[in-house]
Nucleic acid binder design. Sequence first.
DNA 1: GTCTATAGTGGGATAGAC
DNA 2: GTCTATCCCACTATAGAC
Lengths: 214, 214
Amino acid sequence: MKKLSANNRRLEAQDSDLPALAQRRGAYETVLKTALRLFAERGFGGTSVRDIAAAAAVQPATLYAHFPSKDHVLAELIKIGHEEHFSRLKIALLESQPDPREQVAALVRAHVRMHVEFPTLAVVANAELHACAPGLIMASLELRRQSEQMFQDVIERGIRMGLFKVPHAWLAMAMIAGAGLRVSHWYTPAFELSAAQVAETYTQMALRILGVAD
Amino acid sequence: MKKLSANNRRLEAQDSDLPALAQRRGAYETVLKTALRLFAERGFGGTSVRDIAAAAAVQPATLYAHFPSKDHVLAELIKIGHEEHFSRLKIALLESQPDPREQVAALVRAHVRMHVEFPTLAVVANAELHACAPGLIMASLELRRQSEQMFQDVIERGIRMGLFKVPHAWLAMAMIAGAGLRVSHWYTPAFELSAAQVAETYTQMALRILGVAD
DNA sequence: GTCTATAGTGGGATAGAC
DNA sequence: GTCTATCCCACTATAGAC
């Protein structure tokens, strides 16, 4: 039941769903979800507009009735992914008790759950950033920066309050956030633990990184 | 000095060097190193044979004198990356004291150093796996499996000896290994810590994940 | 909005001289 | 081994009917 290799998402993208944020009717959503799956499996450059159209059962010209270009399809997916991620972190923090340990736990839980619940979206939004014209993803990069800052602020407050003891605050954040990102590459519903259990375990291990005793 | 965002490697690939393992003379190495940089920046599908040839200052036909196809160029890079990684882990374990804490530290140190010293190679070998025909990367996938098994074996022995206490052995391995992988996406020599310092800090935090008191 | 059809460009790969 | 030249195909995107 355990994964043989912690890197198989892109071989056959499952769960290429989109958050409620992005659900529209008709060809728009069909194209977006199809493109998500294909970008994950073959990469942006390895997927043609014809591929997307064929898999979505529309003609290439139909795609251009909804998106100005292939780039814009990717940009839209990246935007949806980053907005959903940022939104979840923000809500998690808002609803948390003010104790930095609770706040970090809430952030890590939300971060991991995002990558477990929308793994394909997370893979594409992170791995295909380079394929998009910079102008199209500026807003997403800003959200990413703010998400990192949220983690940073909570960790630094915890250090000042004497609750966290880390060798290097930014590295601790990078390790915790980076580990969560990778979950999207291997998690499937067939894994022996549920999404919630994975999130809880990562949360517990993140607190250990920050020097909080169990 | 700290990175604004933990995801910039692919925007402008630096350090597109290859380990000594792969150093040959002439056009072969030039093409390989050039392809490495371009695959990192634009992705495999976003890079044409003409792009590689032009950046390497050779003609497209010259590339085909050294590689049977564009796929084989990528496969060779992936192979070099995985062989160097596996080799470093194996040596680290061989030279370590038998205490599982020492062994984990040696493995994490080697793992992170690989991703810090050859970040571009690591990014391509991990992010472009999907773009390669399965037959061309079978050996690399097997090395990857063995590398994960090395981590697993050491962690499970540490648990049996009562030295490690983790909520879930495989998840702890996935978190430690995954965090190390991500280092290749943000580390540059301009970072405020040296490669060795980053590796040491990650090692310390990995031991915390495993429940070892500082 | 969706289709058929196609324009115009750039793709991987090869032939054959030197 | 490296070059020039080129084949043939797939690519993104658009025009125009319905």
